Amino acid sequence: MTASPEGWRKASYSSRETACVEIGRTHDGAAVRDTKDRAAGYFTTTEQQWATFINAVKNNHFD
């Protein structure tokens, strides 16, 4: 069993928003959860999956 995600954070840009996601660190990647319903759980990604996603965001692949 893997350890629970640690260091949950949301973007400082969304500090006043309530409909956000939070990112937590895992041993080999990241975890993502909804700030409106933290009890619903989270999904995890590997380090490579997370890096690929972040790269796609930075390169406007979702615009």
Rank of each mutant, 00 (worst) to 15 (best):
H27W: 07
H27E: 13
D34L: 03
S14M: 09
I23Q: 06
H27P: 13
S12F: 09
T18G: 09
G29I: 02
K36T: 13
T18V: 08
R33Y: 03
S15F: 05
E6C: 09
E17T: 12
R16P: 11
R25D: 14
K10D: 01
T18I: 11
K36I: 06
G24W: 05
D34P: 09
A31H: 05
R16H: 13
C20K: 07
K10W: 01
G29K: 00
T35H: 02
W8D: 09
S12Q: 13
K10M: 07
R9I: 10
A30M: 07
S14K: 07
K10Q: 07
E17R: 11
S14H: 08
A11V: 07
G7M: 01
H27N: 11
H27V: 15
K10R: 12
D34T: 03
R9P: 01
E22A: 12
H27S: 14
K36F: 04
R9Y: 00
D28M: 01
T18W: 02
E6P: 00
C20E: 03
A11W: 05
Y13Q: 04
D34M: 02
S12G: 14
A19M: 09
D28Q: 10
S15T: 06
V32T: 05
G7C: 11
E6F: 03
A19K: 08
C20S: 00
K36H: 06
R25L: 12
S12K: 13
V21G: 05
S15M: 05
G7V: 00
E17W: 05
A30L: 11
A11L: 14
S14A: 13
E17I: 06
V32L: 11
A19T: 09
D34N: 14
S14F: 10
R25V: 10
R25G: 11
S15L: 10
R25H: 14
R33M: 03
A19R: 13
Y13K: 01
R25Q: 13
A11G: 15
G7N: 14
D28A: 15
K10Y: 04
G29E: 02
S14I: 03
A31K: 01
C20P: 08
V21L: 10
A30I: 13
A30D: 08
R16F: 14
A19P: 02
C20A: 06
K10A: 08
Y13S: 08
T26E: 01
D34S: 03
V32I: 15
Y13E: 07
S12H: 04
R33H: 08
A30N: 04
R9W: 05
R9S: 02
K10C: 01
C20L: 00
K36V: 02
R25A: 15
A19C: 06
H27M: 08
A31I: 02
G24N: 04
W8A: 12
D34V: 08
D28F: 09
A11N: 15
E22F: 03
